[in-house]
């Protein structure tokens, strides 16, 4: 009965069929394994999806937050992303990791949001974007001195400024790489671009970041 669905934990071995999230452990699950009755199957799928939500919600939210710098919008888009994922969960074949699949949905939702906003500019012109300086404030103190903290904050501010000036695609690729630590192949899958194109976008984005860091934007 079709391909067995595998949930791949991107932070684990990469091919695990178990998801450990927030204390929830799922047994290896395939469509055949849960085919006892329709009720049980639905319950198992829901449980499986809940585990995926628990495992990836923060990452999706974080990516959307960095991408939009709007907390409410990031929250809304995250909810929409998981709602859409839940509706289409049965059609997810497990060709890519659940994270890559979710990220693709999030990227498309963000794109749609900006497109709709451009088309319906008279409806909602208010933006809640967090100020760049305010966004740069967030840094774990760790074992740094006050001076190192200040330097780090300054660097982060420059990177934020560079990110603000990137095109939509460059920003997406850059954030997936340097915030979500994704490899080029994963970024290519999530964005639907070829690896070469991803590399080109990343290279341009890094060039702009470098220029900002050197004070020559």
């Amino acid at each position: 009965m079709g391909n067995p669905r595998r949930i791949v934990n991107p932070h684990g071995t990469g091919a695990s069929t178990q998801v450990m999230a927030a204390g929830i452990a799922l047994k290896p699950m395939t469509r055949g394994a849960v085919e006892v009755s329709t009720g049980q199957r639905t319950e198992a799928a829901d449980q499986e999806f809940s585990a995926v939500v628990e495992a990836h919600r923060l990452q999706i939210f974080r990516f959307l937050l960095a991408s939009t710098r709007d907390i409410d919008l990031a929250e809304t888009l995250t909810q929409e992303c998981f709602l859409k994922a839940h509706r289409n969960w049965s059609s997810f074949r497990g060709d890519s990791s659940a994270m890559t699949w979710l990220m693709r949905i999030a990227i498309n939702l963000e794109k749609d949001h900006w497109r709709n906003r451009r088309m319906q500019f008279w409806r909602h012109t208010r933006t809640n974007s967090v100020d760049l300086d305010e966004a740069s404030e967030w840094l774990p103190s760790g074992e740094r001195s006050a001076e190192q903290q200040m330097l780090a904050r300054e660097q982060v501010g420059h990177v934020w400024k560079a990110v603000e000036g990137l095109s939509g695609r460059q920003r997406t690729v850059f954030l997936l790489r340097y915030v979500e630590d994704q490899e080029l192949s994963e970024i290519a899958q999530a964005t639907g671009l070829s690896e070469g194109t991803v590399k080109a976008h990343l290279s341009r984005a890094l060039g702009k970041v470098r220029a900002h860091l050197r004070g020559k934007p």
């Binding site: 923060l58 939210f61 974080r62 966004a135 967030w138 915030v179």
Partner: peptide, 21 residues
């Protein structure tokens, strides 16, 4: 230098994201 800046940026976004989440 760029690697350090990117690492700091990553820490910044992670800290902010976790706080807001």
């Amino acid at each position: 230098e760029l690697g350090e800046a990117l690492k700091n940026f990553r820490s910044n976004v992670h800290a902010w994201g976790e706080a807001e989440y």
